[in-house]
């Protein structure tokens, strides 16, 4: 019933994402000039930062869907929360992989326990645990309830984690490294960044909607099996 419009939206987002990613690749590797102090490796920035923003957005969506699920008990919201967490973990992994690649040549270290990095890592751990919990529970309303509780608890934890690491940092000063990411981007760099942001955002929306559609279709197929009085095949 409501699968059709979602499917269409997923397709539109996918097409836009396609175009935007091609454009972003061109701009990052051809159009935008090399950054003077950091060199070519700075180009990671155009994928690293949008991925970080999108992963935070994904976890926020997981939180909202979890709250809404506990209020309405709609299966669709359970699916949305799970899909957002899955895709959020993917983008968060991208952040955690590209981060050290960028950091090593610039800061001389792969990793530092500063508030932003640490919070991202803790966030990744929380949502991997969330996905693991879902994997270890039998499907059904029970799983949806339990996962929603963890989805809410995990997200509420984020600001407290960030704050606690900031406090911790004041006790253990680390080399000052961050120059503030967006501070004084040149106009062509800012434009490239914006295109990348749109591309990654569209990719996220396309993946999220596609994931939700797949899950809804599976429900639908099982429903049809039931109507036809046939046992649905086992699914791994």
């Amino acid at each position: 019933m409501r699968i059709e419009p979602l499917h269409t939206a997923a397709n539109v987002a996918a097409v836009v994402a396609w175009g935007a990613i091609l454009g972003a690749l061109y701009m990052v590797f051809q159009y935008v000039p090399m950054e003077r102090t950091m060199g070519n490796v700075q180009r990671i920035f155009y994928f690293h930062v949008p991925s970080a923003m999108v992963s935070f957005l994904a976890f926020f969506i997981c939180f909202l869907a979890s709250v809404a699920y506990l209020i309405t008990r709609r299966r669709g919201l359970d699916i949305a929360a799970a899909a957002a967490a899955e895709i959020g973990v993917v983008f968060c992994s991208v952040v955690l992989i590209t981060g050290p690649i960028w950091a090593k040549p610039i800061w001389g270290i792969w990793w530092t326990w500063d508030a932003r990095l640490t919070t991202t890592l803790v966030l990744w751990l929380i949502y991997v645990a969330y996905l693991m919990l879902r994997a270890y529970l039998p499907e059904g309303a029970r799983r949806a309830n339990l996962a929603a509780v963890v989805g809410i608890l995990g997200f509420l934890d984020v600001p407290i984690v960030y704050m606690s690491i900031r406090w911790w940092r004041t006790q253990h000063p680390a080399p000052v490294i961050m120059g503030g990411k967006g501070s004084g981007l040149a106009p062509d760099m800012a434009l490239t960044f914006r295109v990348c942001m749109v591309a990654i955002l569209c990719l996220f929306v396309a993946l999220l909607l596609r994931r939700i559609v797949v899950e809804l279709l599976q429900d639908e197929v099982d429903h049809l099996y039931r109507e036809a009085d046939v046992a649905p095949p086992e699914r791994g």
Partner: peptide, 9 residues
């Protein structure tokens, strides 16, 4: 009725 997604109990 008790159902959730693809499961109908």
């Amino acid at each position: 009725a008790k159902r959730f997604g693809r499961i109908t109990a």
